[in-house]
C-alpha cells in the first residue's frame, strides 16, 4: 500500500554490484562440472597410463575419458574478470581486467595499491 504512494523514482533499485553475465555463469558451470568429475577423471587417467594393466583395460579407460562431456575438462576453464566478465587482460592477483583494476585502484579499493612514478 505504501509502495504505491511512492513515486517510481523512489522504488528504482540501485545497480547490482556484480553484473551477472552469461560467460561468467558458463565458466562457473564448467568449474563445478570439473570439480564433480575430477576424481573419476584422475582415476581413469591413472588406469589408462598404468603400463602394468592389460592393454584392453587401458584402452577402455581411454575411451571412457574421451566420451566424457566437454565441460568436465579443466582446459575449458578460463579466468574471467569478476566484475565485467572479460576473458582477456585479467590480472590473476585481483581477478579483475586491466581497466577495472585501474578504476578500483584509483578508488582505493585494492589494499596497498598506489599510483607509481619513478
Amino acid at each position: 500500500m505504501v509502495l504505491r504512494e511512492l513515486p517510481l523514482s523512489a522504488i528504482k533499485p540501485r545497480a547490482p554490484l556484480l553484473k551477472l553475465k552469461t560467460l561468467i555463469m558458463r565458466d562457473h558451470v564448467k568449474r563445478h562440472n570439473f570439480a564433480d568429475q575430477e576424481v573419476t577423471t584422475r582415476a581413469l587417467k591413472y588406469i589408462a597410463r598404468n603400463t602394468e594393466l592389460p592393454m584392453r583395460a587401458r584402452m577402455e579407460a581411454q575411451l571412457q575419458l574421451v566420451s566424457m562431456p566437454n565441460y568436465t575438462r579443466f582446459t575449458q576453464v578460463k579466468n574471467r574478470c569478476i566484475l565485467s566478465g572479460k576473458g582477456k587482460g585479467v590480472f590473476r592477483d585481483f581477478r579483475l581486467c586491466r581497466f577495472l583494476f585501474r578504476t578500483e585502484a584509483l578508488k582505493g579499493n585494492l589494499p596497498g595499491v598506489k599510483r607509481a612514478s619513478w
Binding site: 596497498g112 595499491v113 598506489k114 607509481a116
Partner: peptide, 8 residues
C-alpha cells in the same frame, strides 16, 4: 599509460 605499484 598509468603505473601502479604495491609494496609489501
Amino acid at each position: 599509460k598509468q603505473n601502479f605499484e604495491r609494496i609489501t
